[in-house]
Structure formats: C-alpha cells, structure tokens
C-alpha cells in the first residue's frame, strides 16, 4: 500500500487556496440520471444545474423520490449520471473519490459492529495507510471533536443512536476531507437528539470550515443549518428553487422563532408545495 499515502496527500493538497476562490467545489451542469427498470425508465434526475462553492453549507430538501439522495450519490460516485456534466474539485467524481476528496455520512451510522468506536473511526486511516501513531492521534482528536472523548474502547451497540451517528461523522472527518457529504444523517433520530446534533454540526462546520452538502426532509433542519437550500421535486427529480439562507455565523436554536427564519421556512414550504401540485 505504498501508493495510499501519496494519494491522501494529493487529496489534501487539492483545493489550493487561490484557485478555490473562483472555481466551485462541485459543478453540476445539465445532469440527468435515468434508471432503466422493468416498468420502464425512471427519471431520477433531470437537467440539474448546481454550483457549490468552498465553505458553503448546502442542503437538498424535497419529498421522497425527488432525487436528492441520488444527486448526493452521483457527487460521491456511488451512482453514475447518464447525461450532463459534473465535476468535484475540477475532477470527475470517480477521480475525486479515488483521491479521497470527500467524507460521506450515511442515513444509518453503518459502524462495523466488530470494531470499537475508536477502530471504526480509524478504518479509513488504515485503508489510506497512515502510520499507527498518526492514526491514534487523529482518532483521539476526532472523537474529541464530536464530544465522544472516552468512548474509544466502547463497541457500537453500547452507544445510543445519536452517539453512533456522531461516531460516524468523526469517521467521515478523520482523514480531513475538504468536502463532507451527508445523506439524511439525523433522519432516524428523535427530535431532541436531532436538535442537539444540529447545533453540534453547526459548531463543527464553523470550526473546520468544510464544504458540506446535506440531504434532509426536514424544513427546520435545512433552514437552521444551511447557507443555501436547494428545493427539489420528484417525477422527474429536478431542482425547483434555490434559496439563500444566511442567518449569520452564530445561530442558537431560538433563531427558529425569528421572522427571518420563518420567512425562509415559508418559502421552502411553498417550493415543496409547488413541486407537488405540478405532479397532481
């Protein structure tokens, strides 16, 4: 695995500061993806245009079947688009994946049950061929970052759902990718845990200055977290509205009662409703 260390260096060196200022991290133009099924073609994505700049927090929101998860998976090279153009860090998604450009957080924690929390966070570092010493240091640092210090030796089943998802976020961040892709990471958690994790994620984002692409079906979550909200609609999956949503760097949970917050939430809801009526 001599090549691994070289590859991770390349990933970290990729978004050079001066170039990143104008070139978007993610550039999607006229993207479409059609699944061929036994019941005929399913238009999961149709003519999608989107640019995500460095340091942004972009949410995809929409009803199920609108292609928000599919779009995220195309960015991650877990699905292949059937038409259009997409670059991630000025590379094809496959090249970006091979250079370990992003960390991915799934709907479920997907921790490996036979590994301790620490060893789960260590998993990508092992694959990328980091030295044992550096792996240990990073694991401790990442668990501290998601407030899981001291849980290193626990097994996943000994943790609550929210703690498991935090461990999976630590795992996605462990190799310090500049891009964090999150697919409804808090969808399976109860509201109180979700609020708490939303606050923590916001702090994490402010601290690490990552670019985040976040899929959700919760309007308050999207408005609370994002700098930009992409509203999507199904059949065919497409973008129907893009809403700028900068509530400032300091956002306590109370911000959700302010008029500004409610105005944006209202516009998101209007967009979702418009997408639906178009279908009926």
């Amino acid at each position: 695995m001599a090549g691994s260390a070289a590859r991770i260096d390349a990933a970290q060196a990729e978004p050079t500061r001066d170039a990143a200022a104008d070139a978007p991290v993610i550039d999607v133009r006229g993207l479409s993806l059609t699944f061929q099924t036994a019941d005929g073609p399913v238009y999961a994505l149709s003519d999608v245009d989107l640019q995500v700049a460095e340091g942004e927090f972009v949410s995809f929101i929409g009803p199920s079947g609108c292609g928000k998860t599919t779009l995220l998976r195309v960015i991650a090279d877990l699905e292949r688009a059937t038409g259009g153009h997409i670059t991630v860090n000025d590379m094809t998604p496959e090249e970006a994946r091979l250079k370990r450009a992003y960390g991915f957080v799934f709907q479920a924690p997907a921790l490996y049950p036979w590994r301790t929390v620490g060893r789960n966070v260590e998993l990508p570092l092992e694959i990328f061929g980091l030295s044992k010493q550096e792996r240990r240091a990073r694991v401790a640092q990442m668990l501290e970052l998601v407030n899981l210090g001291g849980f290193e030796k626990k097994y996943p089943w000994q943790l609550s759902g929210g703690m498991q998802q935090r461990a999976s976020i630590a795992r996605a961040l462990s190799f310090d990718p500049q891009l964090l892709l999150m697919d409804e990471p808090f969808g399976a958690l109860d509201e109180i845990v979700r609020d708490h994790l939303n606050e923590q994620l916001l702090q994490l984002w402010a601290k690490t200055k990552k670019t985040v692409v976040f899929v959700t079906h919760s309007i308050p979550e999207a408005v609370f977290l994002s700098t930009r909200i992409v509203v999507m609609s199904p059949r065919p999956g497409r973008i129907i509205d893009v809403i700028d949503c900068d509530l400032g760097p300091d956002r306590p949970l109370d911000i959700r009662e302010t008029p500004e917050f409610l105005r944006i939430a209202h516009r998101v809801r209007e967009g979702l409703r418009a997408g639906h009526s178009y279908d009926d």
Binding site: L78, R97, L98, A110, W114, I127
Partner: peptide, 27 residues
C-alpha cells in the same frame, strides 16, 4: 454486509483485498 457497509468501503476507494479483510471476512 449490507449496502451501506459496502458503500462506505467504496467511498474510501478500498481495494477488493481491503474490503475482504476489513469487511467481508469479519462479517
């Protein structure tokens, strides 16, 4: 191993060998 566990390895661009040792075999 379920789809998420395998997708995770794909996001790391893990080789078949690594997928075997770190995921398939323990599972």
């Amino acid at each position: 191993p379920d789809r998420l566990q395998r997708d995770l390895m794909r996001t790391y661009s893990a080789s078949s060998w690594e997928i075997f040792w770190k995921l398939r075999l323990p599972a």
